[in-house]
Nucleic acid binder design. Structure first.
Length: 286
DNA sequence: CCCGGAACCTGAAGGC
DNA sequence: TGCCTTCAGGTTCCGG
């Protein structure tokens, strides 16, 4: 599932290949994926526009266009972007191509999505789509204090609050589990019950976990692929996420799986104790 | 306003 | 083998 590291990888892969290119056309095979505009509007307003800048905000991919408008994509759970040369089939063709964006150098950007939950929007003002997102984890304004202030407003389980895009942008199910593992915090702890020390550790763990995953090109759990078709390798580096029944890489205790807000949640019952007082730092870096 | 759960969607995986 | 049910989890919507 594409979260911040996966989208960041996609942006990094796309940037040298298609930044500065001009859209020449667009075909949409799944009109219900187009939000905040229509297929007709895409066809009318996109061709001719140059991609000035490719950016990421949270889990959103942003193509900033010459007109000042922005094409904003969200991959949700099974979406992916693939680059191909016009008329040249992919080495691993997908039956789930939902939209094709053609560029002036013969490159085609394919939006594939098995479950059709991804979104495509063309907006005049980016804030229409991403205005409510919380801070970027790597922004200098995202300090332990800023995290503390945001967490103090929520009594829901920390796991759920970390996945709330208005609290902090870009973290989803997998990296919430990883960040909690590396900060030694139980996923069911109330978000507003964390101590300052725990929040500091969590803040550090969030950045470390995301940085490592970006270095690994993201996690190819499910349908995620890089635009080149390559898989990421972060799935082999998980300590908690998707490791139910396997032994903890730190203490060999079996990793447990529980449901938090109907989401599969993996944690080590020994490294991530229930009560704040008993939690100790057993490791400080990845 | 806050919180929890359902809906969206469809292939994969598991049970019988 | 094959049918059926359940699961996956980002976001939005809705009801309490």
């Amino acid at each position: 599932m594409p979260e911040l590291p996966e989208v960041e990888t996609i942006v990094n892969d796309l940037r040298p290949r298609i930044e500065g290119r001009r859209f020449t056309g667009v075909s949409v095979y799944c009109p219900e994926m187009v939000h905040k505009s229509s297929v007709a509007e895409l066809k009318r307003r996109l061709p001719g526009q140059v991609i000035k800048k490719i950016a990421r905000r949270g889990k959103y991919l942003i193509f900033r266009l010459t007109s000042g408008e922005a094409l904003i994509l969200h991959l949700r759970m099974t979406g992916s972007l693939r680059l191909s040369q016009k008329g040249k089939p992919l080495a691993e063709p997908s039956p789930y191509v939902r939209a094709v964006f053609s560029l002036d150098n013969g490159t085609e950007l394919l939006f594939t999505d098995r479950r059709k939950l991804g979104t495509i929007s063309l907006v005049k003002d980016e804030s229409e789509e991403i205005g409510k997102l919380g801070p970027e984890p790597f922004d200098t304004s995202f300090t332990p204090k800023a995290l503390a202030e945001r967490l103090s407003k929520h009594k829901a389980p920390i796991k759920a609050v970390l996945c709330d895009q208005e609290v902090i942008a870009g973290i989803g199910n997998m990296y919430a589990d990883e960040a909690l593992f590396f900060s030694g915090i139980h996923p069911l702890r109330a978000a507003n019950s964390l101590s300052d020390v725990e929040i500091k550790r969590l803040h550090k763990a969030i950045r470390e976990v995301l940085t490592k995953a970006i270095g690994n090109g993201g996690a190819s759990i499910s349908d995620y692929r890089r635009p080149t078709g390559e898989k990421g390798s972060q799935q082999y580096d998980f300590y908690a996420a998707h490791r139910g029944g396997q032994t903890c890489k730190v203490c060999t205790t079996p990793i447990e799986r529980i449901a938090v807000r109907n989401r599969g949640t993996y944690f080590c019952p020994k490294c991530q104790k229930d009560a704040a007082e008993t939690t100790q730092i057993r490791f400080s870096s990845l």
